[in-house]
Design a protein around this nucleic acid. Structure first.
Length: 672
DNA sequence: TGGCGTGCCATTTTT
DNA sequence: TGGCACGCCA
């Protein structure tokens, strides 16, 4: 298919900085992939000098595949397509020494982070969940704004912030002792490094000669700084974004960065993509009308040349289970009538917990489905255990990992021994692993405990060496064998069946690890340290071979659906309190929720169905939620409200639509 | 040391 | 209502 004039402009403009305002479904991925191809084929750029950055692994993966399709594997070789975090990781991998990090640093996920913070702040915050989560987000905000502990302390005025700044300082020091980084560090550290170190900056500016950024509205301050530092004086970059799809402000994303760009680069070329190629007219109309309720930075009007087909439906259910059953029944019926595939259907929801009922309904009806996102796999104990072992192989100073598995499976290293070792390590300012070898430890810890701890550490050293020098795949296999993990699973699981399933998970993890170590068509072979960090970032290849034949109904959160499209979309739980979410209502943050709804609606190509419940069980008790205000904001003439099997006539519907909530209540036959 | 029971808390969204 | 954390008991 040919590019339209605006798309063509966006692809061919390479003279300077370029901002593409791309509405939903306006073909921005096409623009990015075509631009990469254009740079390589027409402009003499080597693929290895081009970097494309996105926000989610899924998007990066998809873009990589699209480019490989367009350019061919040969010409695409060396092209960097990654998330911001993976790009940061790559920079750190090369530059870690300058920052005083040892090779093989660990990456802490939020659970590791939480555990560490809890430990470090026991006295001050005495396990107050609320305070701890405030502290975590404060630290994260500081990092996103490139504020280091010293400056945080200086800026702090109220007592709590002063305390938080102290905790921040302590946290950073401890992370350094562990040779560990958190997710935010992956952006913060490279950005500060490029800012202060001209040599390093020159290297990366030379390496990345053209930069493309997708979903630019989701960048936070440090990410934008990083973009500017990499782009440098030449400012050879294209960013693509849509302020209507900014749904990550809670993570520090600043859609104002779109405006800032114009100020920072006065020569910025702005190109708007306003033709939608994805959704049928009605669906697009709904999306446009809904989002018109939000204020806008850049005006844009999406239009479509597609037919104005069947209206968007709104289905009612008695309760959550009924809602799930109805959606499943709709899918089965529709599939039968249309001869479509299960993979053509997506069910979108606000929160991960909503997937449960849906899963159950799909399962009882034997419908294949796939849940994207969700952390269930990596939150399983067996996976956490093996991940901890892998981290230790690479970085034995990782105390979090050390504590997790030093006695799992059992090694007769109990709490008393660990307590003593911990106290000693603390005095010496060393990691548990490093402290184990010191002679001074013998005064505090003797006998069996000492022997057991040293045996464990010796073993770690041996396997670590094997992993670093020899065949890493073999080393990992040996490690799992050495610790008798399978036996341990059978010992510690409630049933042999459960043990078997857990071992299956371990095998899956092992399979991923070996695939990543060995490389594939699309990805180069990685070292074990790389594999471990990439797994922590959840950046792995999808499990291949398994039935990915388009025969699985797609389940995901609205957030996870961004950037994707589906022929038939169900948006469930269209209720006040859920979408918009109660906490957003409380915090007066409706606009972002509206954008979230907008993202969901614009995923649909051919048909869109909303569902909501009359009753929903919440914290054990039944509540009767109001229909989402977003449903009422939609153009009522494009909606088909289901009404006890007897939909109201066109006239009535118009009238009731205009009557707002009161009219709707009347229509549902409910008292207010 | 591990198994079981009670009681409390929970529902945003992701790298 | 259900899942998890902690504490008590064997």
């Amino acid at each position: 298919m040919k590019l339209n004039p605006a798309q063509d402009d966006a692809v061919r403009y390479i003279a300077g900085p370029c901002l593409v305002l791309a509405g939903a479904g306006s073909g921005k991925t096409r623009v990015i992939t075509n631009k990469v191809a254009y740079l390589v084929r027409q402009c003499d750029y080597k693929a290895r000098h081009i970097a494309a950055v996105t926000f989610t692994n899924k998007a990066a993966r998809e873009m990589k595949e699209r480019v490989a399709q367009t350019l061919g594997k040969h010409e695409a070789r060396g092209l960097m397509v990654s998330t911001f975090h993976t790009l940061g990781l790559e920079i750190l991998r090369r530059e870690h020494k300058t920052l005083g990090l040892k090779a093989g640093f660990s990456l802490f996920d939020d659970q590791d982070q939480l555990a560490l913070i809890k430990e470090l702040t026991e006295q001050e915050l005495d396990n107050d969940k609320d305070k701890i989560s405030r502290l975590l987000s404060t630290i994260s905000n500081w990092k996103n704004d490139l504020v280091l502990p010293a400056r945080a302390a200086r800026l702090a005025t109220d007592p709590e912030t002063v305390l938080f700044a102290q905790c921040y300082e302590r946290y950073q020091r401890q992370m350094k002792a562990y040779n560990a980084l958190d997710f935010d560090d992956l952006i913060l550290m490279p950005t500060l490094l490029l800012k202060t170190n001209a040599e390093v900056r020159a290297y990366w500016q030379n390496k990345i000669r053209y930069l493309l950024v997708d979903e630019y509205q989701d960048t936070n301050t440090s990410q934008y700084e990083l973009v500017k530092l990499i782009a440098g004086e030449r400012a050879r970059f294209t960013v693509v974004g849509d302020d209507d799809q900014s749904i990550y402000s809670w993570r520090g994303a600043r859609p104002q960065n779109l405006v800032l760009l114009k100020e920072d680069y006065p020569s910025l070329k702005v190109i708007k993509l306003e033709q939608n190629y994805r959704s049928r007219g009605r669906i697009l109309q709904c999306a446009n009308i809904l989002i018109a309720n939000n204020p806008h930075v850049f005006d844009k009007q999406l239009f479509s040349e597609m037919e104005y087909e069947a209206p968007v439906r709104v289905l009612f259910a008695k309760h959550e289970e009924h809602e799930a059953e109805r959606v499943v029944a709709e899918i089965m019926g529709h599939k039968f009538m249309n001869g479509s595939k299960f993979g053509d259907y997506a069910i979108l929801y606000r929160g991960n917990h909503q997937s449960r009922v849906l899963e159950k309904a799909l399962m009882t009806n034997r419908i294949p489905y796939k849940i994207s996102g969700g952390t269930s796999f990596f939150s399983r104990t067996e996976i956490k255990d093996i991940m901890a072992y892998l981290r230790l192989l690479v970085n034995p100073d990782d105390d979090n990992a050390f504590l997790r598995v030093v006695n799992t499976p059992r090694r007769e290293i109990g709490p008393t021994t660990l307590e003593k070792l911990g106290t000693y390590a603390n005095q010496r300012g060393k990691s548990l692993f490093a402290a184990s070898f010191e002679l001074g430890l013998e005064q505090h810890l003797g006998g069996r405990g000492l022997v057991a701890v040293r045996a464990f550490c010796d073993w770690l050293v041996r396997r670590g060496d094997e992993a670093a020098r020899g065949n890493a795949v073999e080393a990992v296999r040996d490690m799992i064998k050495d610790i008798h993990y399978e036996e341990w699973l059978y010992e510690s699981s409630p049933s042999p069946r459960a043990a078997e399933m857990r071992m299956q998970n371990v095998s899956t993890l092992f399979k991923w690890v070996s695939q990543m170590l060995e490389g594939s068509d699309l990805d180069d072979a990685m070292t074990l340290p790389q594999v471990v960090t990439r797994l922590t970032l959840r950046d792995m290849m999808e499990r291949g071979e398994e039935e990915d034949d388009g025969e699985q109904v797609q389940l995901m959160t609205l957030h996870a659906s961004k950037g994707l499209e589906f022929p038939f979309v169900f948006m469930v739980g269209m209720e006040e309190g859920l979408l918009p979410h109660q906490s957003s209502i409380d915090e007066d943050n409706i606009e972002e929720e509206r954008r979230l709804a907008y993202v969901g609606i614009t995923r649909a190509q051919q048909a869109l169905t909303f569902t909501l419940c009359r009753e929903r069980r919440q914290f054990g008790e039944m509540v009767r939620p109001e229909p989402s205000r977003f449903l009422l904001e939609l153009p009522q003439q494009d909606l088909d409200w289901e009404h006890n099997r007897k939909p109201p006539s066109e006239g009535e519907r118009m009238q009731k639509g205009q009557a707002g909530i009161a009219g709707l209540r009347a229509m549902l036959g409910r008292k207010s």
